[in-house]
Simulated assay, not measured.
Amino acid sequence: MKHILEKYLPSHALEPVFVLIQSNNVHLKIVNERRTRHGDYRKMPDGVQQITINANLNKYRFLITLIHEIAHLVAFNEFGRNIKPHGAEWKITFRNLMLPFIRPEIFPTKLLPVIANHFRNPKASSDTDARLSVALKSYDPQNDKNYIFEIPFGGVFRIYNGKTFKRGPKRIKRYECLEISTGKVYLFQPNAEVELLKN
């Protein structure tokens, strides 16, 4: 397992992550990309504690996602199964598990303040923290996608399932976008990745 993880994690995170996996009896599966999530945790019917993480994540997002999922397991074990999945107990557990990793040997210096800020009150997904998501994205391979906040007002874009939208005004944190085929308005996170068609 350790030699497999070398490919996915920052080198200085390898040993402490391996200890967390072993001490919590985690059955870790690295899987193909899923559009709707980076990872998940499930207690299987046979009692196995299974965590799946997408193989396409960069090593910093992989680490944060893995600790996020281990925090679910630890929080459920410590506080019981009736807690909210991303409630106060999980947030405290996630923060405590993540703290030893927030150091310059593991994360690039320019990421550290963004990560530290995120862990003051961690969100259900790193993607809902637009600042963290954009900072982590800078370590991904280059692609031809744009963020919603980069699309000009009135610009037309396509999302992963082929649907096309026209970008509208910003509403507090998210952007109103009109689905061209139905006329329905949807709200998009500023860091949603889309393909610009015309502006």
Rank of each mutant, 00 (worst) to 15 (best):
Phe101Asp: 04
Ile106Pro: 03
Leu14Arg: 01
Pro141Val: 00
Ala71Glu: 05
Glu150Ile: 07
Ile4Val: 12
Phe101Gly: 05
Phe119Met: 12
Thr52Ser: 14
Lys59Cys: 03
Leu99Gly: 06
Val114Asn: 04
Pro141His: 03
Asp129Trp: 01
Asn25Pro: 06
Leu178Gly: 04
Lys137Leu: 00
Phe79Pro: 06
Arg61Gly: 14
Phe119Cys: 13
Pro16Val: 09
Leu111Asp: 08
Ile30Phe: 10
Asp144Thr: 09
Leu136Asn: 01
Asp127Thr: 09
Glu69Lys: 01
Phe119Leu: 07
Leu5Glu: 02
Ala130Asp: 10
Asn121Thr: 15
Thr164Pro: 01
Leu9Gly: 00
Lys173Thr: 14
Thr109Tyr: 10
Thr128Cys: 08
Asp40Lys: 07
Gln142Val: 13
Phe79Tyr: 11
Glu15Thr: 13
Leu187Thr: 06
Ala75Arg: 00
Lys110Pro: 09
Ala55Val: 08
Glu6Tyr: 07
Ile148Asp: 04
Lys123Ala: 12
Leu5Gln: 00
Met44Glu: 15
Lys29Arg: 14
Pro10Arg: 01
Arg158Phe: 01
Glu150Gly: 03
Ile102Cys: 05
Asp144Phe: 03
Arg42Phe: 09
Glu179Phe: 07
Glu179Ala: 07
Met1His: 12
Phe62Val: 05
Ala55Asp: 14
Ser125Tyr: 11
Leu111Ala: 13
Lys84Thr: 15
His118Cys: 14
Phe119Gly: 11
Asp140Trp: 00
Lys166Tyr: 06
His68Phe: 02
Val31Gln: 08
Ser126Pro: 05
Asp46Tyr: 04
Glu69Pro: 06
Glu195Val: 07
Leu66Met: 12
Pro108Tyr: 13
Val74His: 00
Gly162Ala: 02
Arg120Phe: 11
Pro169Asp: 11
Leu197Trp: 00
Pro169Gly: 10
Leu57Trp: 02
Asp140Ala: 06
Leu20Gly: 10
Ser11Gly: 11
Lys110His: 12
Tyr175Asn: 01
Thr128Tyr: 13
Lys145Met: 14
Leu14Asn: 05
Gly168Lys: 05
Leu57Phe: 04
Thr164Trp: 00
Phe149Pro: 03
Tyr139Leu: 04
Lys29Trp: 10
Thr128Ser: 10
Pro100Gln: 09
Ala55Phe: 07
Gly168Gln: 02
Arg95Cys: 09
Ile53Ala: 00
Val17Asp: 02
Ala135Ile: 01
Arg174His: 10
Gly154Tyr: 04
His68Gln: 00
His12Tyr: 13
Gly168Glu: 02
Asn96Met: 11
Lys29Leu: 10
Leu97Met: 11
Met44Ile: 09
Pro16Lys: 09
Arg131His: 14
Lys59Ala: 03
Tyr160Val: 09
Lys2Trp: 08
